[in-house]
Nucleic acid binder design. Structure first.
Lengths: 121, 121
DNA sequence: CCTCCATGCCTCAGAGTTACAGGTATTTGA
DNA sequence: TCAAATACCTGTAACTCTGAGGCATGGAGG
């Protein structure tokens, strides 16, 4: 019955891709990112803090992001920014996403292509 | 260094989606499916037998597929077919894929949409 | 004749990511 | 005064794919 508790379909790697892309547009802090993901996907996707925070920590330790602590009205925020290395990683991730999306679209909408064999000439 | 051994990005659930879609077009056996996935995705994706066989067994036990054994030239093949229930599942899976793909595309290509608040009037 | 490769089925351990529930602390509004 | 929003954090469980391996038959080439 229960749909699927963990590892929902098609979302593997998506949080990382979205975080990198959104942070490339402007620096943000974790709590803000969680909400911005909901907003920017038109409410199609939502990732909890339990997904985003560990991800941010991992990306920072990899050198993909840098973190800067800020005090705002008595509250602390950790603002993240994409490094040069992170931009390279984003480009690769986006390319890989496109590759997968093309593949799936081919099969879903592409009907039954005949087997191509380009011939040597 | 090593790219990523397991859990490649964006592929979670994709084998199931492709298997259902390809079997909807025509019944196939496991070994054939492994090759057909490579072909029909234009060599963009490839899933090993260690992924496909357990998946077929699971889908059969769920009632999504039916299996029929055939003897062909001394070799045995297990040919799978999508059940009515499986077609429903495929429709749901495809819809869910579209939802995710739209969300990611929105963020990747959609630039920086301003926050919409449709206003009650 | 014998060997290698393709066919065709199968299983298992390992790796990696997300979900969910829970924890802490401050500020704001009712 | 109390609840909710803000803002950070962690750990466990769950799930799927990878890669390597095993078994057996048939056909092609030396």
């Amino acid at each position: 019955m229960a749909k699927r508790r963990t590892n929902p379909d098609y979302l593997n790697g998506v949080p990382e891709l979205l975080v990198l892309r959104l942070l490339e547009q402007r620096p943000m802090y974790g709590y803000e990112l969680v909400q911005e993901i909901v907003r920017s996907t038109g409410e199609r996707l939502e990732f909890g803090e339990g997904c985003i925070y560990p991800l941010l920590h991992r990306l920072e330790s990899e050198g993909t992001l840098t973190a800067k602590r800020q005090q705002v009205g008595g509250r602390e925020r950790v603002v993240y920014r994409v490094t040069r290395k992170g931009k390279g990683k984003l480009a690769e991730a986006a390319a890989q996403w496109m590759r997968v999306a093309e593949a799936v679209t081919l099969v879903l909408h592409g009907g039954n292509n005949e087997q191509r064999q380009p011939a040597i000439a």
